[in-house]
Amino acid sequence: MKTSPLLKIAQIVLQTAMVGLIASLPGRAAETKKPLKVGFAQTGAESDWRTANSESMKSEAAKRGVDFKFSDGQGKQENQIRAVRSFIAQGVDVILLSPLVETGWEPVLREAKKAKIPVILSDRSIQTSDDSLYVTFVGSDFYEEGRMAADWLGKFTGGKGNIVELQGTPGSAPANERRKSFGDALKKYPGLTIIDSQSGNFEMSGGKQVMEAFLKKHGRNFSIVYAHNDSMAHGAVQAIEEAGLKPGKDITIVCIDALRPAVQAVVDGKINCVVECNPLFGPVVFDTAAKILAGEKVPKKILNKDELIDATNAAKLLPTRKY
């Protein structure tokens, strides 16, 4: 083929650029005699939440003088598996893994086990029949988040009102859990009913589109919006404003995640309540790693404590939000 040399050149140029990029990343200077070596296989950089999560790990590692090896899986499991293998080959002390999907990890984790390297799962868990393949799971409690949102609504509305739900991507763990727990918790409040539920795919434009349709379909027949993440809530706010209503006043809005723009919206009175899903795992994860290496016993599941942010504490919390 006459085009293949061209492609080849492009490939070489790309590869060289990548190597250069990786080489130019600031290396961690060895402060102590033998710094802790930790490898982190992240899923990718698909959202603000994820970026904040990666940042937290990196900055915490830098603070503790850890020799930190970060690998971006770019949304592919095979990249993550390759990263874990290379961590084993490099002889790291601890492997951190945010598994993109729940299955298919046994072989590579068995290799880690054989090499006697402890594995900490962060943010997402895996399905396996062999629990000894990882030491512990550090993450958010998606189930608890939905429950907190429902309980807040119960108190705020006095347990009365029709709710429309903006779901996340169908089939994803956060969407499933946040939906289930919210529904379960609502059973305590017979006056609160979900009258419609559609997916906005965790996207701002998706949330807006679904909200526009809800506003036309149900008119003023609902007074509460429950969104599975910030972005869809922002989209809903826009749709409600464009329909000539006041978000936060005419329609109560509750969502989960609590990145900075959403906290700002609570301060502005456009969103009533956000349940935090804290991405700042760094401190907990490295504390846990230190404990494991010191031979201490750690629980199999370490869940982050998430906060509830509404009009009462948003203004105070806003300046502390870095992400």
Partner: peptide, 14 residues
């Protein structure tokens, strides 16, 4: 139009 519609640039999902 995409960016104007949601008043934001979402490089990941747009």
């Amino acid at each position: 139009l995409w960016a104007a519609n949601i008043r934001a640039a979402d490089a990941n999902r747009a």
